[in-house]
Design a protein around this nucleic acid. Structure first.
Length: 224
DNA sequence: CAAGAGATCATCT
DNA sequence: GATGATCTCTTGA
């Protein structure tokens, strides 16, 4: 028998359950926290692709200067003003997509950015350690490639259809949750300092942001 | 290891 | 016409 891997921990769980709309209809920071440990699944024409959420960021509303909706209600941000539980996907830097999940009541524009997944399955494949790093879902742009999601999926309803989030019984304890400022929002004034990024402590699949100020505060955490 | 540049385009002014 | 919720590669100490 192989030793227990992180994946084994993910797969040996209770009955999968698609998260209902109520899950997303809560304060955005709460949803960002609750998403840690949940499994994001895309049933593609070529097979199932799935990963466990290990890193998120909350974009809490029109007053949040880092939130796209703070610039008003436009065609791009329209989805965020709608019902919770839908995808907000946009193209960034001309080459990458970012996947967000709309939160809170209709009319309140807010969303959670999924920044990293721990890979669980890709068309029958369950071991990803030998993959090229480029294929890993350990970053907002890279996880969209992994999940085969692009802006054609913008507005997709997660409560019905071939993309969804489910609870596989993985519990992320409070002591395992690290909070830091969000990444790449230098323009956001006071809001860049708010602790709205959440990730699973010591998980090897969290993204590798370049901003040292946004890194985990404790170098002693990662003894290398 | 840190810092900088380039790729590349939809969206908004 | 400028910008950006990214990522990889290159350079240099």
């Amino acid at each position: 028998m192989r030793p227990a891997t992180a994946y084994a921990q993910v797969s040996a769980t209770a009955k999968p359950l698609r998260l209902p709309r109520d899950f997303y209809d809560r304060p955005t920071g709460m949803v960002a926290r609750a998403l840690l440990g949940k499994c994001l699944v895309h049933e593609t024409a070529g097979g199932r692709v799935a990963g466990m959420v290990v890193e998120t960021e909350a974009y809490v509303g029109p007053h949040d200067l880092a939130c796209h909706a703070s610039k008003g209600r436009t065609r791009r941000t329209e989805v965020m003003f709608g019902r919770p539980g839908h995808l907000y996907v946009y193209l960034i830097y001309g080459m990458y997509h970012c996947l967000n999940i709309v939160t809170e009541r209709e009319g309140h524009p807010s969303a959670v950015l999924i920044r990293a997944l721990q890979p669980v399955e890709r068309r029958g494949q369950h071991d990803f350690t030998a993959d090229a790093r480029q294929l890993w879902p350990n970053g907002p742009g890279k996880l969209c490639r992994f999940l085969e999601i692009d802006r054609t999926h913008n507005g997709f309803d997660l409560t019905s259809g071939r993309i969804w989030l489910e609870d596989r019984g993985v519990k992320v304890a409070a002591r395992q949750v690290v909070r830091t400022p969000r990444i790449g929002i230098e323009y956001a004034g006071e809001w860049k300092r708010k602790l709205l990024r959440y990730y699973v402590k010591e998980n090897q699949w969290i993204s590798k942001p370049r901003l040292s100020s946004a890194r985990a505060p404790k170098p002693s955490d990662g003894r290398s």
